[in-house]
């Protein structure tokens, strides 16, 4: 820029505004950075401009809810060590409490709608992890006895062309009962047959012809099975 940079008849106000707005070239910005260290008046001027522009954003920029899974991504990046229950990865946030929840609950409810098909919280009390030994299939399941919803998250694996994965419930010593064929989506929801319980039960997935087992019992390979554990 060919006009006089830095202090003009406006004192530092113009320069501070340009600094906040990111209009300065690298040299001028570096000079401002140095002044910020040593010059409280300039610091105050910059902070004032930040507040003014922040007010502009507060006033003129509409809030938009981010997609529900975003929090999970942030959490995974920041806290990879943290043992997370898998349904949180579906985008269900950790417990959100207090007055701050108002904004969060809207998308919470949206996700719940998907999981339960009805309004109301999804509160898993059982879970199972169905993993093939070769790592080619990983399905996590969680069950909420209140709503009767069994939610599945197929993290790894897909059936071969012309084949389907079928989900089975084996209660105690009983014969496997089909809960249905897994849809092509990653997330799926199943309902348990009337009177079925997950106590002392096993969930299993078998490889079946398209549309599921023609006999009502598993006909193909059992790819993975897991006892259901209470949480």
């Amino acid at each position: 820029m060919s006009d006089q940079p830095g202090q003009g008849d406006d004192g530092d106000a113009g320069l501070a505004a340009e600094y906040v707005l990111g209009l300065l070239g690298p040299e001028e910005r570096a000079a401002c950075d140095a002044r910020l260290e040593s010059d409280p008046a300039f610091r105050a001027e910059v902070a004032d401009w930040a507040e003014r522009m922040g007010s502009l954003a507060m006033t003129e920029v509409a809030s938009v809810d981010p997609p529900p899974q975003l929090y999970g991504r942030i959490e995974r990046e920041l806290f990879p060590d943290q043992a997370r229950r898998w349904w949180q990865k579906l985008g269900i946030a950790p417990a959100i409490l207090g007055a701050a929840a108002a904004a969060g609950l809207a998308w919470f409810a949206v996700n719940m709608d998907w999981l339960t098909g009805t309004e109301g919280p999804f509160t898993p009390a059982y879970q199972a992890e169905l993993a093939a030994e070769d790592g080619g299939l990983l399905i996590r399941a969680a069950f909420d006895p209140e709503t009767g919803t069994l939610a599945l998250n197929r993290e790894e694996g897909a059936p071969a062309a012309g084949r389907d994965f079928e989900l089975w419930l084996i209660e105690g010593e009983n014969a496997p009962v089909s809960l249905g064929v897994l849809p092509p989506t990653r997330l799926a929801r199943f309902e348990l047959p009337e009177g079925a319980t997950l106590d002392n039960s096993v969930l299993a997935v078998s490889d079946e012809p398209e549309g599921g087992s023609p006999t009502g019992a598993p006909t193909g390979d059992v790819l993975a099975a897991s006892p259901v554990s209470a949480l």
């Binding site: 938009v64 981010p66 975003l70 946030a93 959100i96 701050a100 929840a101 969060g104």
Partner: peptide, 13 residues
């Protein structure tokens, strides 16, 4: 998590 709930819509906006 609370901070995210309270401010993410504005910051995403």
């Amino acid at each position: 998590a609370d901070l995210y709930s309270a401010t993410s819509a504005k910051l995403f906006g």
